[in-house]
Amino acid sequence: MEALGRAGVFLFQSAVGVPSREGWRLWLHQMHFVGVLSLAIVLVSGLFIGMVLALQGYTILVDFGAEQALGQMVALSLLRELAPVVAALLFAGRAGSALTAEIGLMKATEQLTSMEMIGVDPLRRVVAPRLWAGFVSLPILTVGFSVVGIWGGYLVGVEWLGVFEGSYWSNMQANVAFVSDIGNGMIKSAVFALVVTWIAVFQGYDLVPTSEGISRATTRTVVYSSLAVLGLDFVLTAVMFGGL
């Protein structure tokens, strides 16, 4: 409970405020580190998940003679659920753990303290750009995940298994609603981005500055973020699609 309070104050102090010109530069640098460098793992995973969805979906749908609905099935599964959730889990493992370890090591080697003594607030200089980079990059990665996943579904469904191309795309177009499917998926992704990045930077900033402390905090980042993402996904799905 006390840690939650500390984490709240921490989030407020870091995330609120107008960035300076230098702040933008640091943010861009972190966007590269947190976002661009996560692209490969997220896109490759998206491709495989789209391909598997199409393969599994086809074997079920073909029994009902409904394989024309494959495009719609792949797209809805990705946009509503798999893209936000899996991208967030991958992001926690790839970028979240790195953020925790990096900030933790800066703390352990007194870099944060020395920054404070130079008169620079590490919350603004070190934490804020990383937080904002995480907030912004995960939703973008999620979009990439969906796009590549839908393309992967097309490769397997249309190119390999022979579903009619026109029905793959037109059924998808007819049945995916912009607000309730794409919009809700993006809201999920934004919430996950906030939670995962927050957990990652806070765990780094708050850890016990020893090598054991860093390893524990890194583990905690991945465990807490994954649980938070899956738990929140259920809650959000219940609110968005479950008619709560």
Partner: peptide
């Protein structure tokens, strides 16, 4: 704190900056 300097036991240099940029850091930010 801008009027103080502190020398840490470990040096506490910023590991992502080279020697020049480490010394330039306080000048650039203040």
């Amino acid at each position: 704190r801008k009027r103080m300097g502190m020398l840490f036991q470990s040096g506490a240099l910023f590991s992502d900056l080279d020697v020049f940029e480490n010394v330039a850091f306080p000048l650039r930010v203040h």
